[in-house]
Design a protein around this nucleic acid. Structure first.
Lengths: 193, 193
DNA sequence: ATTAAAAGTTAATCTAGTTTAACTTTTTTT
DNA sequence: AAAAAAAGTTAAACTAGATTAACTTTTAAT
């Protein structure tokens, strides 16, 4: 069962008793989305935090000029949501869209609060996940400040070889903050070296 | 007393009883640093999480080419540390240096763990702080992807007018990921408009 | 008060990355 | 299987921002 995937993941951070696992599983629900569907839409309130079991998502926003900017991709074992919208239950800044058919475990804001009350260890889990997420977010900022486009692309290919294969190249360009034309150029350069 | 500053800050997120406040205060220590001193040094283990009571810090790294990149500034009411180093107690990627004489409340990793055990509400506090911090970190990434240098500089001046006044301009350039020369040019342009 | 060091400015030249536009390849739809 | 749509490539012209270097102003040290 795919529940085991989630429990395995959690066990890397905290250890739950069988009873606690049962309570946790009772609070979350499994759901499938089709390629193209949205888990969150810019302007809507983000109702759920989602743990990706299978599939692939992109988190992006459309700016004033109508340009799309991809903030992150989500694959197996990742959490996706508009966290700012989720924690304040106010309209989302970002869209989360499925790039493949995608299965998730999800829970609502109310469920999360209830979970944290009944099992404080889960609040610890999320505190730790947030810490790690923040660290990687800061590292991404540093890469933006210290690496040029080619170096950032190489880092991306290194770190996420599967994502590189699974998503359209123009989305990778967007994630890197460059144009698809320039990414094409970089790829050609890298082949020739 | 400056303890009140910290308690006021905390009360925005959770409410502690007098006893809990007393336990919390017993776990943290007040410390003063001089301008130029380091709270954390790249390569050392980050022993403390610091809450800035007064003064100003910069968090930065020196890359392979010897170039400095400023990741954030810290002023009154901000938390500063190398969080990645702190949570894993491994060598720090970043330096945190005082740009003014700076007073902080600080606690060690062990103190934090003990605090979270004795007062679970504090773990909630930090979970919520991390959520907010992550949201603003993501927004910074988005600005990096969607705004040009002039727009990012205007945003910075808007959001942090005091920091703009207090720190050297070349550090603001570094924070924005541009050269001091180009920042000079932008400032001239903005004056002429 | 003088000198030295650090910070900030200006301008010329250069380059990483954008824009535009035409074209090719791949994927999806009928 | 054809047609249409989406994705990817190439190349020429352009621009935001970097680099270099000389100079001015401010701050710190003797």
């Amino acid at each position: 069962m795919s529940q085991q995937l989630l429990l395995n993941y959690i066990s890397k951070y905290i250890s739950l008793s069988k009873e606690e696992e049962a309570i946790f599983l009772s609070k979350i629900s499994f759901r499938k989305y089709l390629k193209g569907q949205y888990l969150v839409q810019q302007g809507d309130i983000c109702r759920f935090t989602n743990f990706v079991v299978s599939g692939c998502t992109r988190t992006f926003l459309v700016d004033d000029k109508g340009q799309e900017h991809i903030i992150m991709f989500g694959i197996e074992d990742w959490w996706v949501s508009d966290i700012g919208s989720f924690i304040t239950q106010t309209p989302a800044d970002y869209n989360v869209q499925c790039l493949e058919n995608t299965s998730v475990y999800q829970f609502s804001y109310e469920d999360q609060e209830a979970m944290f009350e009944s099992i404080p260890k889960l609040e610890r889990l999320f505190r730790k996940l947030l810490e790690r997420h923040l660290v990687s977010s800061q590292k991404r900022i540093v890469r933006g400040l210290s690496l040029n486009a080619k170096q950032q692309y190489q880092y991306f290919k290194d770190q996420y070889p599967n994502i590189e294969q699974r998503v359209p190249q123009y989305m990778i360009a967007s994630y890197l903050g460059i144009t698809k034309e320039f990414l094409s150029k970089l790829k050609k350069q890298l082949l020739q070296e």
